[in-house]
Design a protein around this nucleic acid. Structure first.
Lengths: 204, 204, 204, 204
DNA sequence: CATGAATGAGAGTTCATTCAT
DNA sequence: GATGAATGAACTCTCATTCAT
C-alpha cells in the first residue's frame, strides 16, 4: 500500500515537473517556441520520457492549461470573495484583468491559443475552464437574485461579463490597442475605466 | 519619371498578387497551412521572389492584414452606414460579428494572431486597424454628441464597444465557449443576445 | 525435481502467452504495428518481462514463427490427408495457398520476412519449417514411388512444388501481380489455374 | 532553350545521383537501414534537398525500383534474346535467376519488399515491372504460337513461369531453403535443376 | 527581375532495449 | 520474477530563408 502510494506520488510529481517545465517554457519563450524536446531538456530527461507521462503534445498542453486554471481559481477564491455579490463581481473583473495582464502567456494558453482544446470533440467537455467560469456564473446568479444587475438570464450575464473582460485583455495582450495611440499606462487606465463603466451600466 | 512610376506601379501590382494569394491561402486552407512556399506556388513564382517584395514573412502578413482591414472598412461603409448614430452603432456590431464569424481566419490575423504586429516597435504605429476603428470612433462620437449613449469619453466608449464585440467573437473562434455547453446555434444566439443587451445597457 | 519441473512448465507457459499475444498482434494489426511494447501491453506485462523469456525480438519472432508452422502442419494433417498421394499433393497445394492468402501476415513471417531467421548462423538449422516441409516431401516421395509424377529426385520434386506455390502466393501478397492488370477475383483464379496446370504438367 | 535544357539535364542528373545513393544504400545495408538522412549524407546534401526531387520516401523508392527494372530489362535484351522462343524462355529463366541471386537486395526491392508499391491505388498501374514482364509474355506467346509449350493461355503461361522462378529465388534469398539442409552450391544446383525440369515439363 | 537550388534547424513521435529496484 | 522508468537513436518531413546565377 505504502509502496504503490509512493509510486503514485512519484508519478504525479514527475508530471508536475513536466508541467512546470512546460509552463516555464510557454511563459518565457512563448508557445510557438516550446517543443517537447526543449521541455525535456529543461528537466534533463530525454524526449521519449515525456511520452511516458503524456501520450502527445496536446495532452501535455491540456494539463498545463489545467494548471493555469487552478491558479486562476485560487486567485479568484482569494481575491474575489466578497460576500456582497456586486462587489464580488467587481473583484472578479479586477482579479481577472490583473491575472491576464500579469501572466499574458498563461492567459494566452488559457483563452487565446488555438491548441489544444480546439481538438476536443464537441461531445467532450472542456473541463479546464469550468470551475473558473462557475465562479463567475455563481456571482452573476447571486447578483440577479438580489436584483443588483440588469440581467435576468444568468448565462447571458456571465457570458457578457466574461466577453467584455476577455475582449479588453486580449486586445491588449495582442497589442491591438496600438490603434488607440496610447502608452502603456494609459492603456491600463482605459481597461479599468472600461470595466468600471461597464459595471456601472449593468448595475441596477 | 514615367519609367520609375511604372516600376513603382508594377511593384505594387506584384505585391497585390502576393497578398491575394496569401489571403486565398488563409481563408481557404487556414493560416497553419499557408507557407511562403505554398503562397509562391499559387502565383507561380518562386519563394525567393517573394523576398524581393517582402523582407520577411511578418512584413507580408502585415500587408495581408491591411488588405483584410480594407475589406472590413468596405463592409462597414456598405452595411453600417445608417445616418442615425445609434442605429449605426448597432449595425457596426452586427457587421463586425458577422465578419468575424464568416471569416475566422481573417479575423484571426487581424485581431488575434501574434504575428505580424507584435514585432512592431512601440514607437511605430499599427496603422492597419486605423480606418476601421475610426468608423467606430466616429459613430460613438456622434452618439455622444446626440446624447444617445451613456458615455462621455469617446475613446472609452469606442474601446468598450470594441472590447465587448471582440471578446464575444474571439471566445467563439477559439472555442472557449465550450465551457457553456451550448451547441452552435445557441452560441450564435448568445452572442447576438449579449450584444443586444449591451446596446440596451449603454443606451441613454 | 518437482519444483524445477514446475518452473520449467511455468516458463513455457509464459512463453506461450507471449507468443500468442504476438501472433494476435500480427494477424490483427499487421506486423508493422506489432512492437514489443504493444505485445507486452496485450498480456498485461511490462516490456522488460518479455526480455526475461526472450533475449531479443528475433528470438521471439522465431518462436512465433514456429507457432505459425504448427498451425500449418495441423491444417495439412486435417485437409491434406488423402491416402492417394497425387490427390494429396493437390490438397497440399490448395491448403497451402488457402493458408497463405487467408493469413498473409503469418505467411509473411513464415516465408517472406527477413527476420528472424536471417540471423541464424549458417551452421544452425532452421527447424521451424521442417515438419511442414516433411509433409510435402513424404507426399512427393510417395508420388514418385507410385510413379505418379514426372520426378525421380524427391528433393527436387518437393522443392519445385514448394517453389511454384510460394512464388504464386508471395507475388500476390506483395502485390506484384498488379503488373497483370487483373482484379482480385481474377488473380485468385489465375493462381488456382496455374496450380492446376502445374499439377497436370508434372502428372505422369 | 539551351539553358532550360541544361537545367533539365542537371535536374535529371541530381535525381540520378540520389537514386544511385539510395540504391547503394539498399544493396549494401538493406532496405530497413536506408533512411533519407543516410542517403542525403552519402551524396553530401541535406535531407531537405532530397525532398526537392522527391515528394516522399515512397516516390524515391519507386524510382529506385524503376532503375532496377531498367537493369533487368537491359540484361534481358542482352542475354535472353535468342530468336528461337523456347530457347529464349530458358535464357529468360537463367537470366532472371542469375540477376536475382547476384543482386539480392535489388531483387528484394523489385519483387519482395512491401514498400513502395503496396501503396499504389488499385487504379494506378505498377508501371515499373511492365517492360520486364512484357519480355516474358512475348516469349511465352511465341512459344504458344509455335506450339512449343503446353500452354494455350499466354497470361497463365507467363504467370506460371514467373511464379516458379520467383518462388525459387525468393525462397533462397530469404534463406528458407535452409529447411533442405543443403549448402550453398547444392542450393544453386537445386534451383537450376528445378528450372530445367520445369522447362522440360512444360515443353510440348 | 527572377529563380533554382540548397539548407540548418527543428518538429513530433516511436522503437528496442536496459537496469536498478 | 517482474517491472517502472528511462533512454539513445532513429525516423520522416516542413519551414523560412539565402545566394549565386
Amino acid at each position: 500500500m505504502g509502496i504503490s502510494e509512493r509510486k503514485e506520488r512519484d508519478k504525479l510529481e514527475m508530471r508536475k515537473n513536466i508541467i512546470d517545465a512546460a509552463m516555464h517554457m510557454f511563459t518565457h519563450e512563448g508557445y510557438e517556441n516550446a517543443s517537447i524536446r526543449k521541455i525535456a531538456d529543461k528537466i534533463e530527461y530525454s524526449p521519449a520520457t515525456i511520452y511516458l507521462y503524456y501520450k502527445d503534445k496536446d495532452e501535455l498542453l491540456y494539463d498545463v492549461q489545467a494548471e493555469c486554471f487552478k491558479k486562476l481559481v485560487t486567485i479568484f477564491k482569494k481575491d474575489a470573495s466578497a460576500a456582497e455579490p456586486f462587489t464580488r463581481l467587481g473583484q472578479i473583473f479586477d482579479t481577472y484583468v490583473k491575472f491576464g495582464l500579469n501572466n499574458p502567456e498563461m492567459y494566452d494558453l488559457m483563452f487565446i491559443m488555438k491548441s489544444p482544446m480546439n481538438n476536443l470533440d464537441d461531445k467532450e467537455i472542456w473541463k479546464n475552464g469550468n470551475e473558473a467560469f462557475e465562479h463567475v456564473v455563481t456571482c452573476v446568479q447571486e447578483c440577479i437574485d438580489h436584483q443588483l444587475i440588469k440581467f435576468d438570464n444568468v448565462w447571458l450575464g456571465a457570458f457578457s461579463v466574461w466577453g467584455m473582460a476577455h475582449g479588453l485583455i486580449s486586445l491588449d495582450i495582442r497589442c491591438r490597442i496600438k490603434v488607440m495611440h496610447m502608452d502603456e499606462s494609459q492603456i491600463l487606465d482605459a481597461i479599468h475605466a472600461s470595466i468600471a463603466t461597464y459595471l456601472n451600466h449593468i448595475k441596477k
